[in-house]
């Protein structure tokens, strides 16, 4: 925490950091509060404690609906149905047993596996395509590279529905409807622009000197990629992968229209599950919690990388 550092050191490093924008080498937890001056330190600590409390209250307010969902998922149907909710009710795993088909025999595994396949394979493909492209744009700029970057950005303007209909017709023609590999291709294309954009931001901060040293030592492009770029940009690659994974896992519109019984993904399964089991709150909450779990686990495991990635991908 920079609060413990002498003020002048703090200011200079902050100034340098400001000059280089958001370098991924800096820990994000840095305290950039405006209250670093030695004078009002005791005062400012008290003020910070107050605002910290306020921030926590707001944070908890935002977290409350999710907490309710998770708690309800562990309740019996009788307790889940009461209003106001019973917080002290006894906990049970019945909701989860029902979600995994204890009484109906309908297994949630095929949609979960479909979602995992689509998310993981498309994320790997995105990285495979985005890293070389971003490298070319960031380190060896293609002529008019701003135009290329703006092209990548412009796909954000397209309403997803604009492409949906032709994609449906084309998929019908080549027999890819209700096939998970169609979703892999679609998710790869949807996430590519934002991935190139993010990777470009990360790679632009790789020192040219390292690349030159490698080139002088006789390394060729594939070697430079594998031995220099990928290790140096690893945090950026992790952040990009995480965001692509979350977007693919959560995508709903295309999955709803283009998949059916065979290739349905987890969110599609959830909506149909809710339609058939809507009155059984605990069961539905268990399903929702189970389907949210992979993205929540991924997000918690790498939360600061996620925040860095988001700010690079969306703000820059």
């Amino acid at each position: 925490m920079s609060r413990k550092r002498p003020f002048d050191r703090d200011a200079s490093s902050l100034g340098a950091a400001g000059g280089r924008a958001k370098s991924w080498k800096r820990p994000l937890d840095r305290d950039a509060s405006s209250l670093g001056a030695a004078g009002g330190r005791v005062m400012s600590r008290r003020v910070n404690a107050f605002w910290g409390l306020v921030a926590w209250l707001v944070g908890i307010a935002f977290f409350l609906p999710v907490a309710w969902m998770v708690l309800t998922s562990f309740h019996s149907e009788a307790d889940a149905g009461t209003n106001p909710p019973k917080f002290g009710a006894s906990l049970t795993l019945d909701g989860y047993r029902e979600f995994f088909g204890a009484s109906t025999g309908a297994s949630p595994w095929p949609p979960l596996i479909n979602s995992a396949t689509a998310s993981i394979v498309s994320t790997l493909l995105v990285l495979l395509l985005a890293i070389p492209a971003a490298y070319a744009l960031a380190i060896k700029p293609v002529r008019k590279w701003t135009d290329v970057l703006f092209f990548f950005l412009s796909t954000k303007m397209l309403p997803a529905v604009a492409g949906l209909l032709p994609v449906y017709l084309i998929a019908q023609k080549i027999g890819l409807l209700d096939n998970i590999w169609l979703m892999v291709i679609l998710y790869t294309s949807m996430n590519l622009p934002i991935a190139v954009w993010m990777m470009h931001s990360f790679l632009a901060e790789v020192p040219v000197a390292i690349l030159e040293a490698a080139a002088i030592d006789g390394a060729r492009l594939p070697t430079i990629m594998r031995k220099v770029i990928v290790p140096v940009a690893a945090p950026g690659i992790a952040a990009t992968a995480l965001i692509c994974f979350i977007f693919s896992w959560n995508e709903m519109l295309f999955a709803r229209v283009l998949t059916g019984v065979v290739a349905g993904t987890a969110p599609v399964f959830l909506t149909s599950f809710v339609t058939s089991q809507g009155l059984f709150l605990a069961k539905v909450c268990a399903a929702a919690t189970a389907i949210s779990l992979p993205v929540l686990a991924a997000g918690f495991a790498a939360q600061d990388k996620l925040v860095q990635g988001l700010s690079l991908g969306a703000v820059k």
């Binding site: 937890d29 305290d31 209250l35 910290g52 944070g59 977290f63 997000g299």
Partner: peptide
């Protein structure tokens, strides 16, 4: 508010991301 230094800021930042991360369908 979150830009100030206080206890558990990292944890708070992780938990406010939860609403964003869970699927919109949910």
């Amino acid at each position: 508010v979150m830009n100030r230094a206080f206890r558990g800021r990292g944890l708070l930042r992780a938990s406010v991301l939860v609403p964003w991360a869970i699927p919109t369908a949910i």
